[in-house]
Design a protein around this nucleic acid. Structure first.
Lengths: 234, 234
DNA sequence: CAATTGAGTGAACAGCGTTCACTGTTAACA
DNA sequence: TGTTAACAGTGAACGCTGTTCACTCAATTG
């Protein structure tokens, strides 16, 4: 490790920290090259020694945030050792709290990422892998819940063959759960995920001024459906 | 109506059409003042005779899109005359199809709108009112379904007093439905809404390559829960 | 017919991402 | 140890953005 390499690593970390600071303060739009450069006492072109483009900087920031959120949630889950019900609550509330506390970061990860139809095969980007690790959080927990005490699930007939085929392909990621159980898990996941997104993005305030109680009720409902011993809300 | 006023109205409509064309082709980022101006054979400063700022242009475009989507869905609902189950399917699938067909417009309406904590009192913007009219679509349908054949709903005790209080405040918008029934309706709405958002924004492809079958199953489940006679999927 | 309103233009400003020629400093090799 | 190559960083510039301003010309009004 050269002295130059050390300086480089330090500067790179400082750039990321600055970018993140600007993101929190002023949203994605605030992450300008000149703004970041000013924050670390550099000029804008100097940043091109560290990132090939502005977009690359933001992309790397996204991957970092994903990793950070994932580890934070993993630690949170570890806090509820043994009690799977508590772990579900910790995970769901943890994600919600994180989103509500830092809407800008949350939006960067989960908001409005219109998929490029052309970009199909690039599943090896760090952002993609980080997203997969994040998704694994929920899959692992759900699989553990199911293997410990399988909850009832709809038979293949009511789901339709096309859906069952897709769910079966996902079976490996869900540690061998049957399609019906994966379907239910997916339902719960999309419910929580959609709920949090809507609340953070203000799409829920049209109808509910404070979504906390609603979220709690939904989480309770989902926990019950998974056969967990959940504390009744308020 | 002067000849000048006519020309003005025509130009304004043409500007909106051009902006919309650019939106469809290249997303929100493509709606540049110079790009729009070029499209209507004007210069960028000329647009300031019609809109106070670039943001105002986009905002007005949003309101227009809301209105257009709302009337399109209303017409779609009218197509399923009498059959409430068919109307639910038409509405849900209509919104989904609209979002999938025009992701850019969909993102503009429903994506990543981080609410400004300061801007609380401005509930009189055309965008807000358009959004309310849009929300009314689902509320009206659900209320009609419930009044025709009330579906079972959880008693107030299991929901918690805080949530019941909020739901009761919404009772007027749901044509006098009880809190428990509103709660269930809200659950179905957020499920559909979240599902469509996630699919359009590509957050569902991580786990399901084709979300059509999944959406159909969810819609079937929801229809059943509302006590409707729904066609079983495939 | 004269005065006024208003649409539209072209130049300009600050800021954006990005490129390029150019400085020093640091690391590597003879 | 001296020479050379690699590298961080700068300042100027390009084309782009939203926006403002002085100005022109046509249409409306009195």
């Amino acid at each position: 490790m050269n002295r130059r390499d050390e300086a480089r690593a330090a500067t790179l970390a400082e750039i990321k920290r600055a970018a993140r600071r600007l993101l929190v303060q002023g949203g994605v739009g605030a992450i300008g090259l000149r703004a970041v450069a000013r924050e670390v006492n550099l000029t804008a072109p100097a940043l091109y020694r560290y990132f090939p483009s502005h977009e690359a900087l933001v992309t790397e920031l996204i991957a970092d945030l994903y990793d950070e959120l994932t580890t934070a949630l993993m630690e949170l889950r570890c806090a509820g050792e043994g009690d799977l019900s508590a772990q579900l609550y910790l995970l769901a509330n943890g994600l919600r709290d994180w989103g509500l506390a830092q809407p800008a970061e949350f939006a960067l990860l989960f908001g409005t990422t219109i998929p490029d139809p052309d970009a199909v095969g690039h599943d090896d980007t760090p952002g993609h892998q980080a997203a997969m690790r994040f998704g694994g959080l929920f899959k692992d927990l759900v699989a553990q819940i199911w293997h410990e005490k399988p909850f009832p699930y709809p038979p293949d007939e009511v789901l339709g063959s096309k859906l069952v085929a897709q769910l079966s392909d996902e079976s490996a990621h869900f540690h061998g759960m049957p399609p019906g159980a994966i379907y239910l898990s997916l339902t719960y996941w999309t419910r929580l995920y959609g709920l949090i997104c809507m609340e953070v993005f203000g799409q829920l305030h049209w109808v509910l001024p404070d979504a906390a109680a609603y979220f709690e009720a939904q989480l309770y409902e989902i926990g019950l459906a998974m056969g967990l011993d959940c504390p009744a809300p308020e």
